[in-house]
Design a protein around this nucleic acid. Sequence first.
DNA 1: ACGATACGGAACGTATCCGTATCGATATGA
DNA 2: TCATATCGATACGGATACGTTCCGTATCGT
Lengths: 199, 199
Amino acid sequence: MTSTADAARPPGRPRSVRADEAIVEATLDLLAEGSTIETISVEAIAARAGVGKATIYRRWPGKDALLRDALRRLKGDPPQPSGGSVREDLITLVSAIGHNVDPRAAQIMPCLVPEMKRSPEQYAFYQSIVEPRRAAMREVLRRGVREGELRADIDIEVTMAMLTGPMLIQRVLNWNPDLDEATLPEKVVDGVLAGIRAR
Amino acid sequence: MTSTADAARPPGRPRSVRADEAIVEATLDLLAEGSTIETISVEAIAARAGVGKATIYRRWPGKDALLRDALRRLKGDPPQPSGGSVREDLITLVSAIGHNVDPRAAQIMPCLVPEMKRSPEQYAFYQSIVEPRRAAMREVLRRGVREGELRADIDIEVTMAMLTGPMLIQRVLNWNPDLDEATLPEKVVDGVLAGIRAR
DNA sequence: ACGATACGGAACGTATCCGTATCGATATGA
DNA sequence: TCATATCGATACGGATACGTTCCGTATCGT
């Protein structure tokens, strides 16, 4: 028993960690540059990574498995609200929408939209990214209600959609070319807080 | 002069109107069933339409032109607000978001999202569909301000995003599985009208 | 040093698609 | 009747991608 646990290291040359990294990075780069999940090719990935195709097929059984693993890398931690006023926390959370840690995510996420519609796994993947962020926002809203800063009769889930939707369609769909993304979070939060009805 | 205008009918067998229709319908069907713009094939379209490939190439110079024409069919007229109260009109408009005349549009539109990000033509196509609907909502909001039902200091464009965003992310992205799409329009409109701040 | 395994690179066979060409059959006008 | 152009079907060449399999080389444990 020379090794800790049963990590019997197999003989021969160990697999290059550098190749592992390069393959995944190349995949994400290509996706961010405009390839879609269906048009991206293993050959392009290999070429971009400076790696032989065989090296890829030694690690993954096929393109789908590789893409699944690569996309999993994009999942960052949900942002932590500072815990100041409810308004400040909401602005923090809303600003983070579609503004991921990995800048490539902003380009890649829209590519997953069509996929989601038909693949339950892709939808589950999407939800696994979105849910933690929803949870953070939900907590801030509940705190606001608890401390009396927000009304008690609001629908939390609908309110989250009201805060998230505008940012998401603007950042993902470029919905309205005339909107300024930089100031949108603050305007949306204040808009939702105040309402638009005359009084 | 036997013909009205200069419609000199060419000799030979006239083109089948039935084939015209079948080709476009087959294209939209395939897109709605999961094909993306890039993976759909002329051969699949021809097979589905019960048509020879040559029949397609006799009408369109290539796949792109066919897709453009087919997608243009999905563009319905923007909904006409009834002209009642601002609240009622907004609910009408918000309910119509992502709720197109052709039910296939709901499946097809998300497919265009990735395309939009890189193709200026696709983005222009998307805007040509969205802008009339935005214009209708803008008009309702301006009317509300004019008639004193809405505050005069609201940002019209941001308000439109607040009304549109929640419906769009729910209908297109299935953003939150717990939200009820049927009642969402009314809740969003009332939420935006009233605001959530305690007072 | 030696065996074992990985490496990058290249080629291969299969499959699919595009756009074009060709076929016999069919429908229209002269 | 006859020329003409379309019909659906099929085949083709060129291109691309997949997944596999071979090189010759590099790097590990023993």
